[in-house]
Design a protein around this nucleic acid. Structure first.
Lengths: 70, 70
DNA sequence: GATTCACGTAAAGCCTGCTTTACATGAAAG
DNA sequence: CTTTCATGTAAAGCAGGCTTTACGTGAATC
């Protein structure tokens, strides 16, 4: 029960010219959390993923995707 | 960093006449995990939420929603 | 060349998602 | 009435998400 996850967080953030700190504040987590997610160190919780989808105004699936194991 | 989450898992599952065990197998977790999520004891991980969305063929947001604190 | 800004690493600690095992219950079915 | 099936509870243990604190780095700016 730990399928890998891809994410487009860094792309979406820099497309909007947001700093990591700004994004962290926007969703209410630490800057460390944003860094760790962007760098793929860990996968966010579902509540955080939903918050990120909200601030980016897109579906969760547009940010996070299951890595297909083929 | 722990906004509450609502979920429609039980509704979606029984609408398809699936047992908890069938669903658990379909997404590769234990039956306990399904029970606990349905009963609101805990919020699933993002990977599990994505798997559930996949088997239900719907967006994550159609199953899980941030509870609005108004 | 000192300061600032955005980004990055490291490590310790708490909380909780998920597992496994074991047992309980009501409804259906023989 | 016993068996089976779907659902539920309880508890212990591990893994990992997230926090806080502290420090390192290159680029820009003065």
């Amino acid at each position: 029960m730990n399928p890998a996850i891809q994410n487009r967080l860094k792309d979406l953030r820099s497309a909007r010219d947001w700093t990591q700190e700004y994004l962290a504040d926007a969703v209410g987590v630490s800057r460390q959390s944003i860094i760790s997610i962007e760098r793929g160190r860990y996968v966010p919780s579902l509540p955080l993923a939903l918050l990120l989808a909200r601030v980016f105004q897109c579906p969760v699936e547009a940010i996070f995707a299951l890595e297909e194991s083929e």
